[in-house]
């Protein structure tokens, strides 16, 4: 596989951050080594739930307006990459929850929200697989992309009525981060590294979509 410049930077950044996270970042006083999963979990959630989903929403709205196939390719690429990152969140979360909360899963607001975003991503990918016509596939998935983003506040609101167990974000909040600076540096670098990884995967997936569409166009 040929790596682009962005790919080389992203992979080196990810390797560097996790070497720092494993060997050069102190253990949490209460949770011990289990807490280190934070450096995968939180940045993946940032990418999968906010960045990738946000991009799907924006490009879907723009597609219905401008009808540019490039926008559809960005939306579908972002959805697929976002699906992978959200899967990572859903796998690392329970692994961390078992030793700390005592259960793999609780029907907590944040967990449920993440699960449903994952379902919407899955529905989006299955929907695309069930339509052959380019233009129709792009239109339908844009409709789903917009509705999915509008659903998020409602899922949040309706599960809010349950008590929440998940800690609030330590980084993306108005007050200062509630962590020692060693950990904050590792976490911030992990956010940056996974954002780079997302950008690279998105770009690769976009190129693949362009080639695939061109190949299918040539055949028909």
């Amino acid at each position: 596989m040929k790596f682009s410049k962005l790919g080389v930077v992203a992979v080196i950044a990810v390797i560097g951050v996790y070497i720092r996270a494993i060997y050069f970042t102190p253990f949490d006083a209460l949770q011990g080594p289990a807490q280190k999963i934070l450096y995968v979990h939180a940045p993946s959630a940032w990418v999968g739930l906010y960045l990738a989903f946000g991009l799907v929403f924006i490009t879907s709205v723009l597609y219905l307006w401008l009808k540019d196939p490039k926008l559809d390719r960005v939306a579908s690429s972002s959805a697929e990459v976002g699906f992978v990152f959200t899967s990572v969140v859903l796998i690392t979360g329970p692994l961390w929850a078992k030793p700390i909360w005592g259960a793999y899963w609780t029907w907590d607001a944040r967990l449920t929200l993440t699960l449903f975003l994952w379902f919407i991503y899955a529905g989006y990918i299955i929907l695309r697989g069930a339509i052959d016509d380019f233009e129709m596939r792009a239109r339908f998935s844009a409709v789903l992309g917009i509705l999915g983003a509008l659903l998020v506040p409602f899922i949040h609101l309706s599960v809010y009525f349950f008590r929440t167990m998940h800690p609030m974000p330590v980084l993306l909040k108005p007050s200062a981060p509630s962590m020692p600076s060693d950990m904050v540096i590792t976490l911030v670098s992990a956010f940056c590294a996974l954002t780079l990884l997302y950008a690279w995967l998105l770009h690769e997936r976009y190129l693949l979509a362009t080639e695939r569409d061109a190949a299918l166009e040539g055949r028909s």
Binding site: A122, G123, L127, A130, I131, L144, F154, I155
Partner: peptide, 23 residues
């Protein structure tokens, strides 16, 4: 309206609609 035009037809409807029914 969307599901009937796809290859999966009635299989796709619950898949798309149920996550939206939850809230």
């Amino acid at each position: 309206s969307m599901a009937v035009s796809t290859r999966l037809a009635e299989l796709l409807l619950p898949l798309l609609a149920l996550p939206f029914f939850v809230p």
